[in-house]
Design a protein around this nucleic acid. Structure first.
Lengths: 151, 151
DNA sequence: CGCTAATAGTTGAATTTGTAACTAACAACG
DNA sequence: CGTTGTTAGTTACAAATTCAACTATTAGCG
């Protein structure tokens, strides 16, 4: 059955990336899930607001390439838990500005510290050079992936 | 709002990995989705059987770290489409052996060729050294992620 | 203005996934 | 053998995601 073995599943990058992404998210997922009952999109929105401050849903959509319905629902849930507040833009009433509340900022800082520590454990054994090389290569792949390749 | 900027979201590895994984899967996903109406777990199961031949669901679970309910459902769907057949193990009647049908093998070969070509496009601009380094680093991260780190 | 198109964000329904409980078959050990 | 535990795989139900359609508002342009 095994034919040309220049290609193995374990070497196929979309596969490897997914495995690595899934495995490396497990630990952090546990933190935001157990401590705050958050979903993946929710911590991401929280972090966007925590790191970059007040912005609109659309900004998050663009920056993170998350679909707008996911962002919409994440924002809703974060608002329900009083982690963020919305403010309608009076210049253009379609828009709304998002901002963390004190509670949201607190949660963000807590998770930030955890993420920081978690990242360190995750990369244990790798040198600074390896890490920056890794980040560079990942960015290239993401880039290449997004410019819609023909299959 | 932006505080210590030693940590940026775009540099957080679980985040980066996820972004890269998602982006780099887009093109291939389009292929298996449009051509065969498959889901992610389904092409994976198909590839496992195509590359390594007859095996049990449990083998796929172990090899790919996919949850058994996902495998169970993927196998069911692949069987419905006549891409694989099951055979009960008469030594131990709890087990069943999975094998691709001719149609399944054909689909596998087709997707294999696409994956191969797609991978090449995805990695355009990277040297062989960079690629093998990338693969090595991804494997390390996956390893580190799976040994349940404390958060 | 008044019509058509575009943008921001939401919602509902269908699909997919996750969790836990389940069935069936075998193993181990008294 | 018979009770208890384990393993393979499935299923039911809840939760999350996707996709398309929707509302509301603004923009463009005759």
């Amino acid at each position: 059955m095994t034919e040309k073995n220049d290609f193995a599943l374990q070497q196929f990058l979309p596969y490897m990336l997914n495995q690595a992404a899934e495995a490396s998210s497990l630990g952090f997922q546990q933190a935001y899930k157990e401590r705050y009952g958050m979903l993946r999109t929710e911590w991401r929105v929280l972090f966007h607001l925590g790191l970059y401050g007040r912005m609109r849903a659309q900004d998050i959509v663009a920056r993170a390439s998350i679909h707008k319905t996911k962002v919409s629902r994440a924002v809703q849930r974060l608002e329900d838990r009083r982690f963020l507040k919305r403010e309608r833009d009076e210049e253009d009433r379609r828009r709304e500005h998002l901002e963390l509340t004190a509670a949201g900022l607190k949660a963000y800082k807590d998770l930030y510290a955890i993420a920081s520590k978690y990242e360190a454990q995750l990369t244990e054994g790798l040198t600074a050079q390896e890490l920056s090389e890794l980040r560079r290569l990942l960015a290239v792949l993401e880039q290449n992936g997004r410019k819609r390749l023909k299959t």
